[in-house]
Every structure is written in structure tokens, then in C-alpha cells.
């Protein structure tokens, strides 16, 4: 079981660049054809100053560029085979664009047992800032640990 004393713990930060090549691989994988992700002109017409990224892509960037993608689980001594993704949220404050360099700073915000201790819910909020220090998004996730 995860120790509640980990609430408030700041986890290792990750820096990730929004590289166009690996974004294209993501778009192709999910069959995403919206021109705002492919055509700079179409993105500009929607008000972006560069190519936009899909709404969930920031979550991927944090894993793609982490030294150890599951470091947050290791830090909390959670076994990868016992976790499920319970909830995921994104709050967007400013655009994330191709070629941006983003910094992800996760922090444990809550740990709670459910179903008489059969499950533990771990909530993590990740603040995302860009290369100019602008707070562009918050990612919130709830990890479900099967004890």
C-alpha cells in the first residue's frame, strides 16, 4: 500500500521538446487528420502562432522524454503491473506548439484507500510551463493501485 506521507511530494521534473517528427508518428497512429496539427496555415487561421498539438499529447511528451517513464511509480514504490489509470484531466491556459520546450513538474496531491484497502487512489498534478516560463497547462491524473 502507498504511504499517505507521500502527499505533497514533488516528483522528478521532465523537460520535453515538441518535435515535429514524433508528433507526426502520434498523429498517424491515432488517425488524426485535423489540419491544425498538420498545416501551419490552417493552425494560424484558428489563431495559433505555430502547429498545434492534440489535447492529450502533453501527457505523452512527459513520458517520452522522462529518463525513466515510470519514475513516479518507482518513487512511490508502486508495481507497474498493479496500476490502472483511473482519471485524467487537462486544463489549458495557453497553446502548446510544435518546437516548444516544455517543463513538466509533477506533485502528489492525494492518496486515499478505497474498497476497504483493496485499492489505493494516487492523485498527481503536473504543472506544465513553456520555454518562456508561461504556465500553459495542468495535467491531473489518478492512478489506481490494486493492492
Amino acid at each position: 500500500m502507498v504511504d499517505r506521507s507521500a502527499i505533497g511530494r514533488v516528483l522528478p521534473s521532465v523537460k520535453a521538446r515538441v518535435e515535429p517528427g514524433r508528433l507526426r508518428y502520434f498523429l498517424k497512429t491515432i488517425g488524426e487528420c485535423n489540419p491544425i496539427y498538420h498545416d501551419p496555415e490552417a493552425a494560424r487561421k484558428e489563431g495559433y502562432s505555430g502547429l498545434a498539438v492534440p489535447p492529450t499529447y502533453s501527457f505523452c511528451l512527459e513520458m517520452l522524454d522522462a529518463d525513466q517513464p515510470f519514475a513516479m511509480l518507482t518513487e512511490l514504490d508502486i508495481d507497474l503491473g498493479r496500476v490502472l489509470h483511473g482519471e485524467q484531466g487537462f486544463a489549458y491556459y495557453a497553446p502548446m506548439l510544435v518546437d516548444d520546450c516544455l517543463t513538466f513538474q509533477p506533485e502528489v496531491t492525494d492518496i486515499a484507500d478505497k474498497k476497504g484497502g483493496a485499492l489505493t487512489m494516487v492523485a498527481i498534478r503536473t504543472k506544465v510551463t513553456n520555454q518562456r516560463g508561461v504556465h500553459v497547462a495542468d495535467l491531473t491524473r489518478t492512478i489506481v493501485v490494486r493492492n
Binding site: Y48, P55, L84, H85, G86, Q88, Y92
Partner: peptide, 29 residues
């Protein structure tokens, strides 16, 4: 991956409304 399904949901979302107008997006798996 839950996030694959959420990527599909996000794709449907930004096909239906302008991506630049989406202020928050969340889901329970």
C-alpha cells in the same frame, strides 16, 4: 491504454469544436 481511448475522445472533441476554445478536458476510465 486508457490514454489511447482518450486520444480518440480528444480527436472527436476537436473535430466537433475548435481546439483553441477547449479550456479543459477530463475523463474517468
Amino acid at each position: 491504454h486508457g490514454m489511447l481511448a482518450m486520444a480518440y475522445l480528444g480527436q472527436a472533441l476537436t473535430d466537433g469544436v475548435k481546439a483553441s476554445l477547449v479550456l479543459s478536458f477530463s475523463t474517468r476510465f
